[in-house]
Amino acid sequence: MVDAFDTLLAAGNSVVIAEHDLHVAACADWIIDMGPGAGDRGGEVVGEGPPATVAAGPGVTAQYLSPLVTG
């Protein structure tokens, strides 16, 4: 799947996706992390930026994303 995104980007296209797979998110240029919870407890931006920035942030996603971007 990421290869298809790379092909689109190389052709000059922009790609915007909503994704829960953190391996895909770790390959992104920019992440918008929504939370702080799910459903009625969500809807706020709790982090945004490159994957390493979000991984270092306060959001719940950070603890799971961090090992994927820091090795």
Rank of each mutant, 00 (worst) to 15 (best):
V69W: 02
D40G: 13
T53P: 03
V69Q: 06
P51H: 04
P58T: 14
T61R: 08
D33W: 05
A4N: 14
C27I: 05
R41D: 10
P67F: 06
A52E: 12
I32L: 10
P67L: 08
A4M: 10
P51V: 02
A18E: 03
D40K: 12
T70Y: 15
P58R: 13
G35I: 00
G49P: 10
G43L: 06
Y64C: 02
Y64P: 03
G39D: 00
V69N: 05
W30K: 15
P58M: 13
I17T: 06
A10T: 14
A4W: 11
P36Q: 07
A25N: 09
V24L: 08
A11C: 09
P67R: 10
N13I: 14
A10C: 13
V16N: 01
M34Y: 04
L8E: 02
D21E: 02
A55H: 03
F5S: 02
P51W: 00
G37M: 06
I32M: 10
V46Y: 07
T53C: 04
V16C: 06
H23K: 11
S66M: 14
G37E: 07
V2M: 12
A18P: 00
A25L: 11
G49I: 07
H20C: 01
A38T: 06
G47C: 01
A38E: 07
L9V: 14
A28M: 03
D21I: 05
N13K: 15
A55I: 03
A4E: 11
P51F: 02
E44S: 14
L8D: 00
W30S: 08
R41V: 10
G37R: 06
I31K: 08
V69S: 05
M1W: 09
T70F: 13
E19Y: 01
D6C: 11
H23C: 07
G39R: 00
C27A: 12
P51C: 01
V46P: 05
N13R: 15
G49C: 07
C27R: 12
T7M: 11
H20G: 01
A10N: 15
E48C: 09
D6M: 08
V69P: 04
I32E: 05
D6H: 13
S66E: 14
E19H: 00
A18M: 02
G39P: 02
L8Y: 05
D3S: 11
T70H: 14
A25Q: 08
D40P: 10
D6E: 12
G59W: 07
G43K: 12
V24S: 06
D40A: 13
V45S: 11
V54S: 09
M34Q: 04
H20F: 02
A28W: 03
A18F: 04
A62E: 00
P51Q: 01
V15T: 00
D6I: 15
M1C: 10
W30N: 12
G49S: 10
G39Y: 00
R41K: 12
T53L: 08
E44G: 13
D33L: 07
A52L: 14
V2Y: 12
I32S: 05
G35W: 04
A11Q: 10
A11Y: 12
A56H: 08
S14N: 15
A25K: 09
T70V: 13
P50D: 15
A62D: 01
G57Q: 08
A38N: 05
D6A: 14
N13Y: 14
H23A: 09
G43D: 06
I32K: 07
T61K: 07
P67S: 06
